[in-house]
Design a protein around this nucleic acid. Structure first.
Lengths: 201, 201
DNA sequence: GCCAACACTATACGATCGTATAGCAAGGGT
DNA sequence: ACCCTTGCTATACGATCGTATAGTGTTGGC
């Protein structure tokens, strides 16, 4: 994979997440990547192509970074280890998402104005995210680690509890004067979340 | 309040929420409002002014629609009634936010690319939202309705559990084929949420 | 009856948008 | 030596962007 090309993809992903599809321009992406507008234009024929390439790149590295914890959890025997593993998974998700918030931002951007791009995104990536997420919740329930409620609702509740934290982090930082992306804050938040869920084992 | 002016504000709020500040243009707002571009430009000297007016309009009607439930809850005696009141509050928040998602979308838009506009938004509206939200949580905890965990964490968890549902609704609809903004879905979701929280009373 | 104030509109400007096309330099096959 | 491909760049085009300004028509004070 060409290095210049990848810098463009990273810049594009950040801008698409921050400014949305319409707010992002070839010139902006090129400037952020330290390249020329025509270079970007050459490698990605038009904006749609650039967007899809950036999104694919983001999801690929997300799926690489968030290993399939499902099998790990299902292999663990002791209940203590398993609860620790869920806590670790939450922490890992938060740490990665704070470092690479593009996937959440892009998802929200497209969901805020549904259209053919969202259709593509769902078909290509998010659809399986939902299914795997639910399977993971059901596994946790089966092992007595999560409350026995509707798995899809619980997936939404947990996803919201985690990702909302990232989305409003700049606001939290301004209001409370704390860095929500710090390890301390993340640990504390995950601790609170698991404490709420624990009682149902 | 002029009626034509308000139609412009409604159109602007929707577009700012869907497309962000950069993605929204005077021409687009005017078209959506059924007015001329110069009419919009006349009443709102520039884009910043239009944005602030639209945001103020949105938050004003949100604060009117979501009555201060705090006093209501604190007045209730019977524990059953109080739990029902929390459930009602969650339902009310979801129903209103599904009908008027602009305030969430605008909040996320600005938080995704922090800048002077987010500073203004926090100072003007969201700052007090945080403080009132925390006070509300603490009241609920004091009355034994919510788990005794860090109030700010719990506020984030609950806010996330509710607002995430709205943000990803178009995705949920595509994946599951359900309408998350229907009363059934909302009731079911709130039911699941309160069931998770109840055990701690 | 006149003029100032006001609500609104028509037109215009430079900048930037996404896109198209022509050109350039280097390399490989023949 | 020749040409064709490949990777990249320079320039250009019409559309739309945010903004500025001049103009129109109505209204109310005097």
């Amino acid at each position: 994979m060409n290095e210049r090309r990848e810098r463009v993809l990273r810049a594009a992903a950040q801008l698409f997440g921050q400014l949305g599809f319409d707010g992002t321009s070839f010139a902006l992406v090129a400037e952020k990547a330290g390249e020329q507008k025509t270079f970007v234009q050459y490698h990605f024929q038009n904006k749609e192509v650039l967007w899809r390439a950036a999104v694919s790149h983001v999801w690929l590295q997300r799926n690489n970074a968030l290993p399939r914890y499902i099998e790990d959890i299902s292999l663990q025997r002791a209940s203590d280890d398993r609860e620790k593993m869920i806590r670790d998974l939450c922490r890992k998700i938060l740490h990665f998402t704070f470092a690479h918030p593009e996937w959440v931002k892009i998802m929200f951007q497209e969901a805020s104005a549904p259209g053919p791009r969202l259709d593509w995104l769902v078909k290509e990536f998010i659809g399986t995210d939902f299914i795997e997420g639910r399977a993971m919740i059901e596994l946790g329930q089966h092992q007595g680690l999560l409350p026995k409620v509707d798995a899809m609702d619980l997936l939404h509740i947990l996803s919201g509890a985690l990702l909302y934290l990232v989305s409003v982090a700049p606001i939290t930082e301004r209001v409370l004067g704390l860095r929500p992306d710090s390890s301390d804050y993340i640990d504390h938040h995950v601790d609170t979340l698991t404490r709420i869920l624990r009682q149902h084992a």
